[in-house]
């Protein structure tokens, strides 16, 4: 009835496609286009080869690093938003939200233009370098060596920068949601009783924001783990992540069963991350009296 239409849609246009992929992950290529479902596990065994294990490990590492950087960058920002006056708060939140409403492809493209060897970042660095060179000449040390532009694009650094750039709002918003409910008198008490700002942050604000940190980390980690576009456009030949390998199996290598197995491994990894987060946030309230 009311639920019928959405459930029908979900079953036919969501669960069925995934079920087919799941079934294919136990199949093997039979000729050029046919796939026979033989119930083999060889696709999963192949995914355990060092080459692919390495890519999985690398993807997880890049996603974790992205999450950490988002947390480091976003946490003070979220605290600032929390303690800002109301009008300013809206503007600060809009500041992080606005890029988020911009098309992902446009944002990635914008990053390419900034990170290139002749991009804004290198131009700025070159300016500083030449100023430093002039200074050192003026002081009688002779000019510095010629400026060498940093290669910031088409490597792993670029992928991490891009992922942080894209996922920062995913971290800031849950952090803000958690910090906004925080009882300010606790902070005042802490400062009153002689703890400095550093100790107050470390022992009061961070533990109280833990649920926000957990959900923000999950919201950042999961899409970063399955990112396709960022490693594809910003990364170099060695920056492949899981999603790129999956795409290649389906579109170029034409090995659907293996691609299907990789997709489901990524899916299981996602579910494990969600389960871990649920476990962590479920256990937390018991620890704090």
């Amino acid at each position: 009835m009311t639920l019928g239409a959405p459930l029908f849609w979900l079953a036919v246009f969501f669960l069925a496609p995934l079920a087919i992929v799941w079934a294919y992950s136990f199949g093997e290529n039979d000729g050029l286009v046919r796939i026979s479902l033989t119930g083999t596990f060889q696709n999963y065994v192949r995914a355990l080869e060092p080459l692919y294990l390495q890519i999985f490990a690398k993807s997880a590492f890049i996603a974790a690093l992205t999450t950490l950087l988002c947390l480091v960058l976003g946490f003070p920002f979220a605290v600032a938003v929390t303690f800002a006056p109301r009008r300013l708060k809206v503007w600060l939140l809009l500041l992080v939200m606005l890029p988020f409403w911009t098309n992902l492809l446009i944002r990635t493209y914008a990053l390419i233009a900034v990170l290139r060897e002749e991009g804004v970042v290198n131009a700025g660095l070159e300016f500083l370098w030449s100023a430093g060179s002039a200074l050192s000449q003026g002081l009688g040390f002779g000019p510095l060596d010629e400026f060498k532009p940093l290669s910031l694009l088409y490597n792993n650094t670029a992928v991490v920068i891009g992922l942080v750039y894209i996922h920062l709002p995913f971290m800031v918003l849950p952090l803000y949601a958690a910090l906004d409910r925080l009882d300010r008198s606790l902070l005042e008490a802490s400062l009153d009783l002689g703890a400095g700002h550093a100790r107050t942050w470390l022992f009061i604000i961070v533990p109280l924001a833990a649920p926000g940190i957990l959900s923000g980390s999950l919201l950042t980690f999961i899409p970063a783990l399955g990112a396709y576009l960022t490693p594809d456009l910003l990364g170099g030949p060695d920056s492949q992540m899981i999603a790129n390998i999956i795409e290649r199996q389906f579109k170029r290598a034409n090995n659907w069963p293996f691609g299907a197995a990789l997709s489901f491994i990524l899916m299981y990894a996602t579910f494990i991350a969600i389960a871990l987060q649920a476990l962590a946030s479920g256990r937390r309230p018991k620890e704090t009296p």
Partner: peptide, 23 residues
């Protein structure tokens, strides 16, 4: 049903993408 409806939100884009390709 609740969990199934939540799935499209958490499933990685690439997985849904290849699902649609195959479908």
């Amino acid at each position: 049903v609740d969990g199934a409806l939540g799935l499209p939100i958490v499933v990685p884009e690439i997985c849904l993408g290849v699902g649609m390709l195959v479908f």
